[in-house]
Amino acid sequence: MYDKFKGLKASVLAGALAVGAMQPATAEEGLDFQTVSDLLHLVMSSDRTVYTRMIVNRLAVEEKVITASEHFEDDKALVLPAQMFRFGSEMVAEETDAFSYSLLSLWPINKQNAPSTPLEIEGLEYLAENPGENFYGEEELGGEKYFTAFYPDISVAEACSKCHNEHKDSPRTDFKGGDVMGGVVIRIPMDS
């Protein structure tokens, strides 16, 4: 499914993650793309879950001292967990080309988050049809070859499905808790 990584980059990435339980990766062996990608996703999804639970659920649902809103600046509110995730990915894009990630959906409220490559369509459809599973593939974009991994993006709080069901720009209105709403897509260039 994916090539064994030969260069340094993947091991550097994994090192940067500093996941204590992992075996230390040596430069010679390297980590394969899937492992790197899985680890990156673990960090992303854990951070996002912490934000959702300890910030949004605690302050907006339990304590009710603040709301979370798409227009967080104008509404003086918390950023939505999905926005927090997106801002992180934009910050990464400003820092490095070594990997990139995005949050996409077959039913996006904002059309710019609809799949834009054939593999994105395939991956997102796989996630929707196989709950709990990931999807991995390779694709060529802008003359460069990428390892691309897809992870399900789940409705983890009532607010997720509620907002997507009620938003006037949402193409789907029957989301339930635990449903696959889209996918996190991580890309790592394979040749550089």
């Binding site: 709990g132 789940i154 808790g177």
Partner: peptide
Amino acid sequence: DTCEGCHGGNKYVGA
């Protein structure tokens, strides 16, 4: 109908 999505063992939701 209502509970399985989360309580079926969906590791992302924490139910």
